[in-house]
Write a protein that binds this DNA or RNA. Structure first.
Lengths: 135, 135
DNA sequence: ATCCTTGCAAATGATTTGCAAGAGT
DNA sequence: ACTCTTGCAAATCATTTGCAAGGAT
């Protein structure tokens, strides 16, 4: 029983081959759109349907297994749920790199939220620009 | 000739009544989805079509008049282009409040981008949680 | 054995496009 | 006058749904 099976059971979902396959593809790329998940999976597994991917993305986001990453000018990508972090997004090649949020920044954001009496649940920080390969 | 007419001409777009109306609605709410723009405008102006709104959102984003605000679990909203700022987003009532990015935070983000050799163009910071009215 | 999930096809919803008529410069 | 933009309808693309068959617990 691998980690993804365990993860799925923990949140009350059946550990189907389809879901495990999706999680592996998502983990393998870091961040990926629904169409790209489908393209990747469809190659080796032609019967897995797009509708199944949609249904599972929805339920796994709801259960907190995945997190949606909404993006400017593109369809959302999805990533495994993990602690808040920064996305460095290239506007040319669409690559996304992750970066930890350091304690100072975390504290800074907490103060901002607190000042507005917002009970903070998630911070999404996206820095858009040109990555080193695209400059 | 009002400010929006001037703004549109500056970027090379004709200042039509439809575009000026859209900009007024967007400015009036701060952040608004395409459907809500349509709902608002359609009341007082029943012939303005949804297709026109789509076309104009697209071109005004392209020209840098508007900025897309992509959101978790919802369709994007749009705002007038302005310097980067923080969005405090309520996950219950979907309200969005703006907050300035102070110099310290700005510097902090610049260092992070620089460290990864990203040429930074835009910072999107979204803090999700519960606003004071919804707690 | 039971209930959840899949895969297909159909339904719905969102966005884009083509084009003739109208508005802005 | 010229060109860009609008509004409608149709086309396309994205997402969701219903349901019978198969799979996980």
């Amino acid at each position: 029983m691998n980690d993804y099976m365990m993860l799925l059971k923990t949140v009350g979902l059946k550990a189907t081959l389809q879901r495990i396959g999706m999680l592996e593809v998502i983990a393998g790329t870091g961040h990926i759109s629904i169409d790209d998940i489908y393209a990747k999976i469809h190659q080796m597994w032609p019967t897995l349907s797009l509708a199944t991917i949609y249904k599972n993305i929805l339920i796994m986001v709801e259960k907190g297994v995945l997190r949606e990453v909404p993006l400017m000018g593109a369809k959302s990508k999805y990533e495994l749920m993990q602690s808040d972090h920064i996305h460095l997004i290239c506007q040319k090649c669409s690559s996304i790199e992750d970066k930890m949020i350091d304690d100072l920044l975390k504290e800074h954001l907490a103060v901002i939220a607190q000042h507005d009496l917002l009970i903070l649940k998630q911070s999404h920080i996206n820095l858009y620009g040109l990555c080193k390969n695209c400059q």
